[in-house]
């Protein structure tokens, strides 16, 4: 595993040498902040209206659980941003190594393909963590305001990391298949979008299929985290995708060696 850390460190270093990393982190922080404040203002307004209704007529049309609803919406949006950003992050992971010829260096070094894949994955996960870090102060701010649900926030962050991990692992695999970075990006978008939103098909499916379709959806499992539900099943679900992605990447890298050029 020593080699994996070396590769992860190199990966992270290369990310932060290029301006792309800073742009991505900045935009992610900005969007998160904007969603956060917009939604916070929206729910505060809603609750004000509800309060007024109660004061006037003694009851409200709204069933509000502001902290939970707000957090649910916010983390749902965060998952959409991840869906947009992560394929751009993973598209080059193996594709670039192939293009630059550095894959030849790595595969002629005394390391196992598994260590290479693990290193790549860890590097991208570290980047994801760096990207998520600027959103943490938002919740410090929320906590200062008094009303917040630390359990839901924690579960949601675990959910984001789990979802991001699965997306990275699959993106890594697609990247190992592609010699062209654009194909790698679009391929990853395709795979991830389908897996994310396949639960929308469940709404029109016959009842026996609903659970089956939902089971495959990233979104379906991820939303459980944002509701503050930390179930072993959802964790295993995402862990399985990670393991599958990493395993396939390793096989795929072995296969690259059999190819010409």
């Amino acid at each position: 595993m020593r080699h994996a850390f070396a590769i992860a460190r190199r990966e992270l270093r290369s990310f932060f040498v290029s301006p792309i990393a800073y742009v991505v982190v900045t935009i992610f922080a900005f969007l998160s902040g904007a969603f956060f404040s917009n939604m916070l203002v929206y729910y505060v307004k809603q609750s004000t209206i509800a309060d007024r209704q109660i004061a006037l007529v003694g009851r409200s049309d709204f069933q509000l659980d502001v902290p939970t609803m707000f957090l649910g919406e916010f983390f749902k949006n965060e998952s959409f941003i991840l869906l947009l950003v992560l394929p751009l992050l993973t598209m080059g992971l193996i594709t670039d190594e192939r293009r630059k010829g550095t894959l030849e260096l790595l595969l002629t070094s005394p390391l196992r393909p598994g260590e290479l894949v693990a290193g790549k994955f860890l590097g991208a996960m570290a980047f994801l963590s760096v990207m998520l870090a600027p959103t943490v102060p938002l919740f410090v701010f929320l906590a200062l305001g008094g009303a917040w649900e630390p359990g839901v926030v924690l579960a949601s962050y675990i959910g984001l990391l789990a979802l991001g991990g699965a997306q990275i692992a699959l993106g890594l695999f697609v990247s190992s298949l592609c010699e062209n970075i654009l194909i790698s990006a679009f391929g990853t978008y395709g795979v991830l979008l389908i897996l994310h939103f396949v639960d929308t098909s469940a709404t029109i499916a016959r009842s026996i299929w609903v659970d089956f379709i939902n089971f495959f959806s990233f979104n379906f499992h991820y939303l459980n985290f944002t509701r503050g539900v930390l179930s072993l099943g959802d964790v295993i679900y995402f862990a399985t995708y990670m393991a599958l992605g990493l395993f396939l990447t390793q096989r795929s890298i072995e296969a690259i060696r059999f190819k010409r050029s």
């Binding site: 080699h3 270093r13 630059k100 010829g101 260096l105 005394p110």
Partner: peptide, 21 residues
């Protein structure tokens, strides 16, 4: 074609190679 990472400095690159070797 030398298998280099263009974004690293020469020293960083050699340190990385030394590590994986």
């Amino acid at each position: 074609n030398p298998p280099v990472y263009p974004e690293l400095t020469v020293r960083q690159y050699l340190e990385f190679v030394a590590e994986i070797k």
